[in-house]
C-alpha cells in the first residue's frame, strides 16, 4: 500500500519541522514546503536519515501559481497542514494598513488559496489542519497577527462546513507560547516571565503541537471537524494561586 501523502507548509524549522518529523514517523510521505529551499532540504534530509520519507519543495506561500504547480507535482494529497505564517511585534499606533495586508496575505489569504486548491484534489477521509494561535483570544502589541489568526479560526470553521460533504475534515490547533528559534529571537521576550504564567509550569515545545496535529490528521479523529484545539499549557485559564 502506498504511503499517505502529507504537505506541511513552513516546515523547514520550528513547529512546522516538528510536525513534518512526527508525520514522517507516523508513516506519511511528507512534503516539506518552505520559502527557504536550503533549510527545507536540510529538514527533509534529517527526516530521511531518521528513516522517514520526506522531500523538500521551495514554495512562496503567497504565489498561487506556485501552489498549484506544487499540488500538481504531488498528485494525491491526504493531509494538508497549513503551518506557514509570519509574526512581528508592532504597537497599535505604529501599525499601518500595509502591515495588516502583509500579515493577512501570508497568514490567512495564502492558507485559503492553498486549501481551496488542495481540497479539489483530496479524496474522502482527507484532512486539513490549520495552525492558528492562542493569540486568537487577544494579545497586546501585534493586532495584525491577532486578527489574522482569529481569521484563521473563522476560515477553519467555514472550510469544515463546506468540505464536510466531501468527507474532508478541517480543524485548527492554537498553540500557546512555544519555545522556537522565532520566539527566542524576539527582543521583547522574557522567557522566565512567560513561564511563570503557565499553569503547567513550562513553555511548549514544537513536539507538543506536532503530536496534536498528528492526532487530528489520523483516522482516529474521524468525528472531529471544525474544532479549534488550544495547546497552551493552560495559559488561557485564570491564574492559579499555587499549591
Amino acid at each position: 500500500m502506498a504511503k499517505p501523502i502529507a504537505l506541511v507548509t513552513g516546515a523547514a524549522a520550528g513547529i512546522g519541522a516538528a510536525i513534518a518529523e512526527r508525520l514522517a514517523a507516523d508513516g506519511y510521505r511528507v512534503c516539506i514546503a518552505d520559502r527557504a529551499a536550503g533549510p527545507a532540504e536540510a529538514t527533509a534530509d534529517a527526516i530521511r536519515k531518521a528513516g522517514g520519507d520526506a522531500f523538500a519543495e521551495a514554495l512562496d506561500i503567497t504565489d498561487e501559481i506556485a501552489q498549484a504547480a506544487l499540488l500538481q507535482r504531488l498528485g494525491e494529497l491526504d493531509v494538508l497542514v497549513n503551518n506557514a505564517g509570519i509574526f512581528d511585534v508592532k504597537d497599535f499606533f505604529e501599525l499601518t494598513a500595509d502591515d495588516f495586508r502583509r500579515m493577512y496575505e501570508i497568514n490567512t489569504v495564502a492558507m485559503f488559496t492553498l486549501s481551496r486548491n488542495a481540497a479539489t484534489r483530496m479524496a474522502k477521509g482527507a484532512r486539513i489542519v490549520n495552525i492558528a494561535s492562542r493569540a486568537m483570544l487577544g494579545a497586546r502589541h501585534y493586532a495584525h497577527y491577532v486578527s489574522s489568526k482569529a481569521a484563521v479560526v473563522g476560515l477553519t470553521r467555514a472550510m469544515a462546513l463546506e468540505l464536510a460533504p466531501r468527507g474532508i475534515s478541517v480543524n485548527a490547533v492554537a498553540p500557546g507560547v512555544i519555545e522556537t528559534q522565532m520566539l527566542k529571537a524576539r527582543s521583547d521576550t522574557n522567557l522566565d516571565g512567560l513561564r511563570a504564567l503557565q499553569p503547567l509550569g513550562r513553555l511548549g515545545v514544537p513536539e507538543d503541537i506536532a503530536r496534536t496535529v498528528a492526532f487530528l490528521a489520523a483516522p482516529e479523529a474521524d468525528f472531529i471537524t471544525g474544532q479549534i484545539l488550544l495547546v497552551d499549557g493552560g495559559r488561557s485559564l485564570g491564574g492559579a494561586t499555587g499549591i
Partner: peptide, 21 residues
C-alpha cells in the same frame, strides 16, 4: 501526546457545534 493541553474541552461532535445545515 496531549502533555501541553489542559483545561480544554475537546469536541467530538462531527462539527455539530457549528450549527445545523
Amino acid at each position: 501526546r496531549s502533555a501541553f493541553i489542559t483545561g480544554e474541552l475537546l469536541r467530538v461532535d462531527g462539527g455539530w457545534a457549528m450549527g445545523r445545515y
